[in-house]
């Protein structure tokens, strides 16, 4: 579903944020992307969803090149950033209706879907209020509901559990499993290694912009914890 081939991104000023990175996320995968602060996770994610351009390499979503078929790629993708900066001048329902219009979700489907998801996340009563009155967690939930509206083939999340209450985290994990069960793929970054270890069937570790470990979670960790593996591969990389 997502193929990143030899991705390289250098920022103006000379810093190489991502260096020749390649990975593949298949349909049905919950793929965890972990690394230190500044390792290149968000840069990679932003290149996938079309926020950043990149210098070298290729990114394919559902077999389509993000550079040449950008619009088609975006139609099958949903992105949730680490900081839910969304249109504060809209009410929650206006925001969701806007997203539904953009993705051309049929009227009856969107109504039912919004009601169901909003009730589940516990923000249904406040959908008529302005987004500017929402807390960080409520905004995060609103973005999540918007992202799930068109049942994306690829869901990309940057630190999705930050700001969510324990119940919402549990619901989100359930949603992720359900989406993958329908044949979609999920690619997400996180610092919470316990979550990644339990949730993901595949994991990639990035350090200094380079992929330092990648594979099925069970094979990667073996009899160690993900935390031990992470410290090992990232420090080994730094020692080199």
């Amino acid at each position: 579903m997502l193929e990143i081939k030899n991705l390289t991104k250098t920022y103006k000023g000379g810093k190489t944020a991502v260096d020749n990175l390649s990975l593949t996320v298949r349909a049905g995968d919950i793929y965890g992307f972990i690394g230190h602060n500044g390792a290149g996770k968000t840069t990679t994610i932003k290149a996938v969803v079309g926020i950043h351009d990149f210098d070298k390499g290729e990114i394919l979503i559902d077999g389509m090149n993000v550079r040449t078929r950008s619009l088609a790629c975006k139609k099958v993708t949903a992105y949730i950033p680490d900081n839910p900066d969304i249109y504060e001048y809209l009410t929650g329902i206006q925001y969701l209706n806007f997203i539904a219009d953009i993705y051309q979700v049929p009227g009856n489907t969107r109504q039912e879907s919004i009601r169901r998801e909003a009730e589940e996340f516990g923000i249904y009563p406040v959908l008529g209020d302005l987004v500017s009155t929402y807390s960080h967690g409520m905004r995060q939930k609103l973005v999540l509901i918007g992202a799930l509206l068109h049942e994306p083939k690829l869901l990309v999340l940057d630190e999705p559990f930050v700001g969510l209450d324990p119940e919402a985290s549990l619901i989100l994990k359930g949603k992720m499993y359900a989406l993958c069960g329908k044949g979609s793929a999920i690619f997400f970054s996180t610092h919470v290694l316990e979550v990644a270890e339990k949730l993901c069937n595949r994991i990639a570790v990035i350090s200094g912009g380079k992929l330092v470990a990648e594979g099925e979670t069970k094979k990667l960790t073996g009899d160690k914890s993900l935390e031990d593996v992470f410290m090992e591969v990232t420090h080994h990389d730094e020692a080199d």
């Binding site: 953009i102 049929p106 009563p125």
Partner: peptide
Amino acid sequence: ARETKGNYRMKELREKSVLGTM
């Protein structure tokens, strides 16, 4: 200060074109 009502009830959601909604 922003007024919050917290009593939203679903109404019919009208579909618009991409340009219209933008």
